[in-house]
Design a protein around this nucleic acid. Structure first.
Lengths: 190, 190
DNA sequence: TCCTATCTTTACCAATTGGTACAAACACAG
DNA sequence: CTGTGTTTGTACCAATTGGTAAAGATAGGA
């Protein structure tokens, strides 16, 4: 049973990359079987609910990661400037400096949105609330903090879209760097 | 033949909404037939290349619209401030204030990216070049203009992702309004 | 009226889809 | 070695996919 849990958990990163790369619909069972090296039998053994359960398991893991590495620090870190800076670092690492796409954002635009709508909503809503709080503690007024938070999230998501569209991850990096400057993490260079 | 051209053109908006709503893969021929009221025979009569030709025709139309209504004004309008402000107005109208998704951006994230990669690239590259030029003429240095242009495009795309994810078009509107303020189209309100 | 080009309907196709059933292989505790 | 529960391979399923073929309808000009 230790083995079972371990192996199911090992599957999640592979499934996540598959969904990121192909989307939910286009990641067929044939493709999943090929990339995981597992037959349908095993796949349905670990995920009796089929693809939908796979996607939900992946989203669970993503939720967990962001809660642990991003949202919670934003809420609890004493120094809010550090908290926001840390968020940018974590995000940069997670999205591999623009080479990786945000699965939640992609699902939001894609055909299958309705199937995961509520999860998608809370993911961004939680992020937005946590970030707004940190910005307020950093001295911004309530309205300004909320506006800035939305702007930061949009820049991150839009940066991923642009980096993918232009096939140039550097776009994402430049946007993050610009954000650091604007948020006072660095001094403007010129 | 006048009839033929007219009817094929009339199909494009329907196809565009279909692709926006469901994505390329999930917009099945059955669905397309249902929404257009046309059988497969007619569809393949107008688009012998099948779905791919439909998508390319839609992308042609989008390219044309943006070239005419956005890129060209950005390049040619005498007053660059006005040009950028006009762009924001056009974009707001086109995306129905955040209720409509950017098909090109969605394709960039989706499974079918590779099939339209070059078109997606040039769409954003053209936009970026035109906007950078206008910003330079508005007084920004070359580097600053390029950075600001990328930031504006990312905000628009990210705003559409967020609006869709949060199921709240107002997010997009707020981001556009914020942009107007930052670009000096309006005075800050507080 | 007849002819021709445009358009549509219908039936069909092989391939693939997600999902199920179930027997065989496996590991491992007793 | 035996028995038990977990894991896998194989064969199968109905439904749907994008796409084709070709007969039939519909028009417009001569």
């Amino acid at each position: 049973m230790a083995k079972r849990a371990a192996e199911r958990a090992d599957l999640l990163p592979i499934l996540a990359e598959l969904f990121r790369e192909y989307g939910f619909e286009a990641a067929s069972l044939a493709l999943i079987g090929e990339r995981t090296g597992l037959g349908k039998g095993s796949l349905y053994h670990f995920f009796p609910g089929g693809k939908e359960e796979m996607a939900n398991a992946v989203l669970d893991e993503i939720d967990g990661w962001f809660e642990r590495e991003v949202f919670k620090p934003l809420r609890e870190e004493a120094d809010p400037q550090r908290a926001v800076g840390g968020m940018l670092t974590a995000v940069d690492a997670y999205f591999r400096s623009g080479r990786r796409v945000c699965l939640v954002g992609a699902l939001a635009l894609a055909e299958t949105r309705s199937r995961f709508a509520e999860r998608i909503r809370t993911y961004f809503a939680d992020w937005n609330v946590a970030l707004t709080g940190a910005l307020q503690r950093a001295g911004h007024g309530a309205v300004a903090a909320a506006a800035l938070s939305e702007e930061i999230l949009a820049l991150i998501q839009g940066g991923l879209v642009l980096a993918r569209a232009l096939d140039d991850p550097a776009v994402f990096e430049r946007l993050l760097a610009g954000l650091r400057v604007r948020l006072g993490q660095l001094l403007p260079t010129s």
